[in-house]
Design a protein around this nucleic acid. Structure first.
Ligand SMILES: [Zn+2]
Ligand SMILES: [Zn+2]
Ligand SMILES: [Zn+2]
Ligand SMILES: [Zn+2]
Lengths: 146, 146
DNA sequence: AGCCTTATTGATAATCTTTTTCAATAAGGG
DNA sequence: CCCTTATTGAAAAAGATTATCAATAAGGCT
């Protein structure tokens, strides 16, 4: 279902600011902070208030249309979200972020931890960090040059 | 190795504020924000500046003596950290947080994602959310009462 | 135990980020 | 095309984090 439909179906309007934020994030390969979103849109002429960026992100996140991802250094940003169970993998060098499908791969771990701790697990946060193909290539080239 | 030793070995002093923050977190069952730490210490007479809380946390986190954990709602807090590969599980109801040992349980998942995405994975962020034993018991009691 | 050096603290101010407020605007149903 | 009302945006308020710098105290040395 399109993000416009998700908004409508939940009684929200498909407004200019929401469209701008949504489309920008969909195009971006990297997570963006509210400020970065504001600046990117301002510079490309399509101005909107900083407040609207915050409000759009809040709503879009609530509806699952965008996701928050955490950088290794602790800062966080937003990426366009896909539906269903999924997680993100971030490049430590260029911050390129892509999504991978969630699976039952954690179920063994979760069972073990439930047995160990007596917690009942219902949810999880998982992100992988590493180096993306492009940055690996750059590293390889640099090494060759030496 | 004790946290005091870690500080010393890295050329830092075992100061009052660092001790207060470290001991408070070690005793706390829940993650705490800088403000919560500041207030808790102030109220128990052992006053220190807000700024010192920030600085202590920054340093302790850098040395791996405390960890940042993310609440399901997006807010974050600090917990006393254990050494080695580990993760945290949080109770969604009372925020009690405990540590569980990391393992190789993600290696299958990581291999799959590396194959799918061509990323080289070096690190990960994992947290589990659920209900702790105490809160399960409360739920059970409540149900019985009905 | 007392002294000295210097890392660390804390009060204040500066900066940055996020939220509130409320009149003006525009989305979308009719 | 009009009307209703959700949404926006400017400005201000509130909240969180960081910089400054004189005063303090940790820990090495004797
Ligand atoms: Zn990269
Ligand atoms: Zn998952
Ligand atoms: Zn609980
Ligand atoms: Zn792990």
């Amino acid at each position: 279902m399109s993000w416009q439909k998700v908004l409508s179906n939940n009684g929200y309007r498909v407004s200019g600011p929401r469209r701008l934020v949504m489309e920008l994030l969909a195009e971006s390969a990297q997570p963006m902070t509210p400020l970065e979103i504001y600046q990117a849109l301002s510079q490309s002429g399509r101005a909107l208030g900083m407040v609207s960026v915050y409000r759009a992100l809040e709503l879009l996140a609530e509806l699952g249309l965008v996701c928050v991802v955490y950088n290794p250094n602790g800062s966080s940003g937003y990426v366009a979200g896909s539906a269903g169970h999924h997680h993100h993998i971030l490049c430590k060098r260029c911050h390129r972020t892509i999504t991978f499908a969630g699976s039952e791969d954690l179920s063994d771990l979760i069972q073990r931890v439930e047995a160990e701790t007596n917690f009942r697990v219902s949810d999880h946060l998982l992100q992988l960090y590493g180096i993306c193909p492009e940055c690996q290539k750059i590293s390889a080239d640099t090494v060759e040059d030496n």
